[in-house]
Design a protein around this nucleic acid. Sequence first.
RNA 1: GCAGCUGUAGCUCAGUUAGUUAGAGCGCCUGUCUGUGGAACAGGAGGUCGUUGGUGCAACUCCAACCAGCUGUACCA
Length: 474
Amino acid sequence: MNKKISKPPVDLPGGFIDRKEKELVIRDFLIKQIKEVMTMYGFEFLETPSFEYTESLGKFLPDKDRPSEGVFSFEDGKKWLSLRYDLTAPLARFTAKNFDNLSRPFKRYQLGTVWRNEKPGPGRFREFLQFDADYVGTNNLLADSELCVLMTEILEKCGLANNEFNIKISNRKLSKGLLEDLEIIDQEQQSTSLRAIDKLDRVGIDGVKLLLGKGRKDKSGDFTEGAKLQDKQISKIIEFLNSKGLDQLERIDCKNQLFQEGISELKQIIKNFKFFKFNNYKIDPAVVRGLEYYTGPIFEAELTFKVKNEKGLDIEFGSIGGGGRYDDLVKRFKNQDCPAVGISIGLDRLLYALSQKNIFNFDQKCPVLICVLDNKFMDYYFKILNSLRSNNINSEIYSGSSNFKAQLKYADKRGCKYVIICGEDEVSKELVTLKNLVIGSEISEDIESREDWKKSKDAQKTFAFSDLIKEIKK
RNA sequence: GCAGCUGUAGCUCAGUUAGUUAGAGCGCCUGUCUGUGGAACAGGAGGUCGUUGGUGCAACUCCAACCAGCUGUACCA
């Protein structure tokens, strides 16, 4: 044997993780809640494949030097394929492909894994599960309103309290109109300004001022180039950002037509909220969400509590969901006007946030372990097993080959609440000994010597086989 | 991508001014205990000191490059 042969790594590529039962159980729960809400609201369930032609997904065409900038891609024959990075681009493709057969508005929801080749962070991976709900083929703002309501209902059903998040609403027409009105028309300067606005909640008003002006140094001393606007323009934008409600926004002196359209759309959306008796929202002009793509109202679900990393430090967590109106998306594929609006929620991020609240319980999942004291009692063990399973009790016969002591350790590690112990004494008299490991563990805290715990049989009980189900259900 | 910090056992970390065979706690395995996990005691396994190169008689220790992780920042459909 040559020891020098290097073994393959057990590490995973950065941003990819193994997901264990505890997490998957919660994830299944979240999915179940989402499906219920979506069905209630009358949305269709859709699934599209993981891969699409790279061109169909959008602007991230692989070039020879960096074929995977942002997306995972490979060349299949002469065509480039990519793993989808969201569910919206595939929806637009699907809609265009089936345009003539779809009812419009077309309401669909989708749950699926998406992949992004970018820097991972806490609760943020390169492979993650996303949920999307969209209205395609309507410009009725009732759809926008309903999606906000729906997002709220989902988050609440998933375990967030009403005061632990809120939906921030804005309109791309406001920021765009304002910039036009301030004669900031240079494309570069516009984008930089929009990005600066978007950062309000992270860098604060002063940070935004710097980013709109000369630029800003971050905590590590790294410098970000600013938009280099004039002071007059900056103070106008700051006034805009400080406008908390619709009233204050309306008072801003801006004649720009786009801006005014934005205001009246927001008014309509809020008016619609009354139908839904919905008020867990906040007008927030600082919401921008990306640069391309969105054309009108935009929404973002923001947590109101601090998220910590595994070392207990508060971290910048960002939003757990959001969306908006993207009226031009389908047009990329088909020469048809097809306004649309949608939301998405990152389930892994939601799960990460929820996991800090300790609201989930896993007791029932662990099986009852039937210990094997001797193989000659197998018939009896299977009699017990069949009885448990037919009564819907998770159970198993120890499947290793170690001694009794090791079997208890195994049960301990699995988190089993009960073990069943049957040897000569029990089998000959049709009895069952049931040991409660949880109680046993509690008792052990007061036990000091080995003699004491040998005596401590409070945690276990012996009774007739016929009473097994009755006893275990107690 | 950029910046700062951190890489020593499965985990958390110590390791002096470079100086024999690199340590601790927790965890893991075995025994005391052949029908009782969690206590105690005793023993054991487990390390190419992130990687590669450099300087030294000598490198975990100094230098360089690279890699990985964390945090911030940029980009974000």
